[in-house]
Design a protein around this nucleic acid. Structure first.
Lengths: 151, 151
DNA sequence: AATGATGAGTTGTCTCGTCAACTCTTGCTC
DNA sequence: GAGCAAGAGTTGACGAGACAACTCATCATT
């Protein structure tokens, strides 16, 4: 790899600003979820995926893939959410095979409210401050980067 | 707060893409630091700040503020980095007051190499793929967001 | 039908980050 | 100058995530 070893002050400033914005944004999103619903971003991620599943039911591995998480992280998270009564692990298929994760009624209700609020938050923080041209520019860059870095 | 409760599919797609790009970018940056220098992003953060300090010396509280970390997180991190021989806590001022954190010689050397490589990584992943319009869009949005969210 | 390979899910362990409690210093006020 | 409030730094306990080892089911092969 070539070692240029330097960025201009402007470039550093741009990078720092960008990173700080991301950090603040993530923090704010977390804060809202925590304040309004008492859940973490990780819990929210599970709720969203299960809510979006066609039959409201997913396997641990599928969750891990779509969330880009470790399988064990999903298992641990589900254990905690099961304790809180948001999800249910059911025996689908053979005995002892607890494949098939589903939202409980309170979990589904929570998911809907949290997703609605999340949409508001995104609109307020992102879209309200973004012109269509800016959004297009960012989208292009995002797609380009994903293409080069995606596993 | 108004409850509009919905984003268009396009808006959701934009948001998901953007978030994924950010996630992949952060992951790649971490991976390079870990692979080439065996350090985490957190360790890198400390190295950068100490390296940039005018007299190469900072207090715990200052580090916590500039990094936007908990004070205790800084203390824990410094304990780990002290064990690894990257930083030194010295008694400056009164006895028992270990204010004044500084890089050791190996720590400073590591900081310089890691920062150079980091600059390369950023150039490769971000600037090389970013048109002026895209950069401008991101910069504008970032600044706007920081202004509204900064503590 | 027994064997072995693959894959799903779980569990234990270790590291990291947060929160709250604590110690010690500094500096103010009476 | 004694007392006390504010601030600096540390520590311990707990929750979360990464990684590796494990159990059990499924399925192909013989």
């Amino acid at each position: 790899m070539v070692e240029t070893g330097s960025l201009s002050p402007d470039e550093w400033a741009f990078w720092d600003t960008w990173m700080q914005a991301q950090r603040l944004l993530a923090k704010e999103v977390d804060r809202i979820l925590q304040r309004d619903f008492g859940i973490s971003k990780a819990e929210f991620g599970i709720l969203v995926k299960l809510h979006a599943a066609p039959d409201g039911r997913m396997r641990v591995t599928d969750l891990a893939v779509t969330l880009d998480w470790e399988k064990s992280r999903v298992a641990h998270q589900l254990t905690r959410m099961e304790r809180r009564g948001f999800v249910e692990r059911s025996e689908s298929g053979a005995v002892g095979r607890r494949t098939g994760i589903a939202l409980t009624a309170p979990g589904a209700e929570l998911a809907e409210r949290a997703i609605r609020r999340h949409a508001d938050t995104i609109r307020r923080l992102a879209f309200d401050r973004l012109s269509p041209e800016q959004a297009a520019a960012i989208a292009t860059w995002s797609e380009d980067l994903i293409e080069h870095l995606a596993p």
